[in-house]
Amino acid sequence: MPSRFFEKRLLVFFSELQSFFSLSLKALFRIFSPPFYYREFMAQLDKGGVGSLFIVCLTGLFSGMVMALQAIIQLKPFAATSYIGGMVAVTMIKELGPVLSALMVAGRVGSSITAELGTMVVTEQVDAMQVEGTDIIRRLITSRLKAMLIAMPLLAVVTDAVAISGGYLIASGYQISPLMYWKSLPQFMKFQDLIEAVAKPVFFGFLIVMIACHVGLRVSGGAEGVGVAVKRTVVIASVCILVSDFFITKLFIAFR
């Protein structure tokens, strides 16, 4: 009996995975072919990108400040506080900036995409769109995907910048020379780190949108179903971001 149960669960898992990849490929192939739904794309860029600015700034600011604070305490006994800027920068740019901003966006934008699409499904708006001759993947998914592929790296860059500035605020409060703080940044960074800082959020943006759309379009069961789907999106997207971050980091280290 338990083997039957696991077999069934495994089957459901692989079928979901298959439909996720199929949907992702369809959405990706539609990026460069018309119609582009420019208005929809701009609206999504505004909602997902500009709308998330405040929350990622807040996340970046406090992450940078707390990292600087901890670093000062750890490095002071070794008289190495001049490296604080570099430490904050390398940690934020390579790891925490992309991951934290992506987690925030997964909660804010991913949940809203799933709720929006899920509601459209249960109120038959998606069916109505199909009957009206719309390619729903192009209109509902690709426009969101394009917006997030552009917005996510920009948001991560903003998070990094704000975090480094937050670290500077704390460092200056502890009488660490501003010059030393800023000069230590390039000492710790390489050009490849900047590529990593952009590549990761692009991939996270892709994951967030595709998971949110995949879950949203499969909603059933009315308002409760929408609620369950939103929860699923946030959980799955967050876990996927953290897991994929490890593997992307491994990949970058392998090609270092």
Binding site: E124, D127, A128, V131
Partner: peptide, 15 residues
């Protein structure tokens, strides 16, 4: 589908 149209139960207007 160009030959067909439907009026859904709840209207299904795009909100």
């Amino acid at each position: 589908r160009k030959k067909m149209a439907i009026v859904f139960q709840g209207g299904a207007l795009f909100d």
